[in-house]
């Protein structure tokens, strides 16, 4: 027994990741399926991948830092707009946009985070919401740079990435790399400290942890990854619009994380795929798609208040008990 527990820390992160069979099945599906799918679904899958990264990045705040942000779309938009403006107005290559977008988002997150991490709970929610709206109004009003409500259009990737399937694999590689990176961050001492802060902030403070500093670092990191999603999005979508910074987008991202299960690394991934699929399917079935989406979310809230992954876990535990 003693020996086994000692063994655990020596497991590499890769071995730990291998312990998620669901994840590996998913990755195999994502790699192999697209060539056999109609283009529509490939576009939809690229879009979903970007929101997977958004949901996982916001989970750095919620699941690890206990910070509920309703302004995450702002960093997504800043990343997208920065990349788009550099490419369309300064004539930079795509690579520069892909690097500068996330950096700008991280910078904005660091500045806004400075004010947000000073407060907690409901104040944090409303502050992030209000700052998100501030970013939205700036995007809307700064027409010369952002195109205002017309959006920034005509942002095309280089010829080789114009094909939907090429862009899909390009996105997939970057997103998978980001997911592995975020997983490593979460499993690192940094992630453990964040969890400690989430669960017992006062105790964390009393043992000398710089709570605000850790929270700000998490906030900035989440902004960085949202910026990566944003700068990938702007090339995929050939442009970006102010709505991408609107609080409704933030709520969507948040909902993905919560719906999938914020306590799991895989939860937000499942949540993003689930919600994006619903958003694709329900409007094609009924004009009142919002109503039915609401009913589905409500049902999940009742049955699995901690998200789909939590529900999956308890179901598995129950099956095990039944068998055992």
């Amino acid at each position: 027994m003693q020996k086994e527990t000692e063994m655990v820390p020596s497991l590499t992160w890769l071995q730990k990741l291998a312990g998620h069979p669901l994840l590996w099945g998913l990755v195999a599906l994502l790699l192999l399926c697209p060539p056999f799918l109609p283009q529509t679904y490939v576009v939809q899958m690229t879009d979903t991948l970007l929101f997977v990264l958004l949901a996982v990045s916001i989970n750095l705040l919620i699941g690890y830092g206990g910070m509920i942000s309703l302004g995450h779309a702002a960093y997504f938009a800043i990343g997208g707009y920065t990349a788009g403006v550099l490419v369309t107005q300064a004539g930079m290559p795509m690579l520069v946009g892909l690097l500068a977008g996330p950096l700008a988002a991280a910078l904005a997150a660091a500045v806004i985070g400075l004010f947000c991490v000073r407060v907690a709970n409901a104040y944090f929610i409303m502050l992030t919401l209000a700052f998100g709206q501030l970013v939205y109004t700036v995007v809307w009003k700064w027409r010369a740079l952002t195109g205002g409500d017309d959006g920034l259009v005509g942002v095309a990737p280089p010829a080789i990435l114009l094909s939907e399937i090429h862009y899909y694999y390009f996105t997939l590689v970057i997103i998978l790399a980001c997911l592995v990176l975020i997983h490593r961050i979460c499993e690192s001492p940094f992630g453990t400290t964040l969890k400690a802060i989430r669960d017992t902030p006062s105790r964390a403070r009393s043992i000398g942890i710089d709570v605000a500093g850790f929270k700000l670092a998490a906030f900035t990191m989440a902004g960085l990854f949202a910026g990566i999603a944003g700068s990938l999005y702007v090339f995929h979508n050939r442009g970006i619009f102010p709505q991408s910074a609107l609080w409704v987008t933030s709520t969507d991202i948040m909902l993905m994380a919560v719906l999938g299960g914020a306590n799991h690394f895989v939860g937000p991934i499942v949540g993003a795929i689930f919600l994006k699929t619903l958003n694709f399917v329900i409007p094609r079935l009924t004009e009142y798609w919002l109503f039915f989406l609401g009913v589905v979310v409500l049902l999940i809230a009742f049955v699995m208040p901690r998200g789909l992954m939590d529900g999956y876990d308890s179901l598995r535990a129950r099956l095990k008990r039944m068998r055992g």
């Binding site: 529509t40 576009v43 959006g151 709505q243 409007p283 004009e287």
Partner: peptide, 19 residues
């Protein structure tokens, strides 16, 4: 298809229909 009054949704739908 419903674009939800949203240009981003509109571009996505246009590509879907065009394909």
């Amino acid at each position: 298809h419903d674009d939800k009054s949203n240009p981003a949704e509109g571009t996505k739908l246009f590509r879907e229909l065009a394909s």
